[in-house]
Nucleic acid binder design. Sequence first.
DNA 1: TTAATAATAGTAACTATTATTAATAGTAAA
DNA 2: TTTACTATTAATAATAGTTACTATTATTAA
Lengths: 157, 157
Amino acid sequence: MNNYRMTPQRRLILEELRKTKKHPTASEVYQLVRKNIPDISMGTVYRNLAILIKQGKIQRINNGSKKERYDGNPYEHFHIKCTECGRIDDLPEDLVENIKRNININFDYKITGYDLFFYGLCPDCKRRQEDKMEEKIPEKSKNYGSLKLQKLGKGED
Amino acid sequence: MNNYRMTPQRRLILEELRKTKKHPTASEVYQLVRKNIPDISMGTVYRNLAILIKQGKIQRINNGSKKERYDGNPYEHFHIKCTECGRIDDLPEDLVENIKRNININFDYKITGYDLFFYGLCPDCKRRQEDKMEEKIPEKSKNYGSLKLQKLGKGED
DNA sequence: TTAATAATAGTAACTATTATTAATAGTAAA
DNA sequence: TTTACTATTAATAATAGTTACTATTATTAA
């Protein structure tokens, strides 16, 4: 049960996850690997994703969606998700450094990990929204982010 | 479509969410409201949860689980989840203040919100684990949290 | 009072994920 | 090499959380 074999299917799944920066869902991984192994099954994809996570080679992203997303980078880094189209990118390192330096905990939980998740508009959607704004009478903008959590994306979920 | 009525079902769902600190799932909400309205249906619960979110009266919690959780507090605050039993609590305000003061963003996304999620052991599970440790020969502890994301809880998901 | 719209309970459908099954292929010991 | 063992696979069935649909009832607006 703990002597894993590196099968062609497993290797391909890992390679595809390492190649892309798109943080694909399970079925997106399935579509990718099917190009090289056409008769691979969804069950194989799910099973191997779970094994690769258990081995610490990839990670699952907590993205507040029903569809899990997977990341070929197993090391600590944070994500940002576009509330418009659902696209997920990595946050730049230097932006995270400030935050990490300032976590001091005196609290009755034993903290073993954390996940910092930003929501917003990716460059493309930001531009699209700015274009739309110009066609309208400007109204007082609802600015979340500073006072209120905003996690109701209109994106792909 | 945007003239909502405050029906008894909707009012009860909101009241129950405001009363509890347990961040219940949809079916837990269903169990709660069924005590007063025994013939309410799951569909009604889901529909009203969605409407209350749209109205900004409650929020859905991004908890990395298949089961969504709901929170009667619509204002910004952060959560911590026990990786052992899945319990979710609010993070103390003062712990978050440090972090918030240090987010300075120069990045091509328009950030409209964020979610900071901690993982760990709640007081009960922490004690249980410490008890278990005493029965074993102590081994070098695998300490995540500082260098590696840890989001593979063994809890209720 | 009439028409339009929201909301409801009940149920069916959907979808992401997990479990099962029978077959296959590496691996280790005899 | 044979044998037994175990990991893995494709295909398919099952599960579970959520959403959509349907007929009916309640509320609001004209």
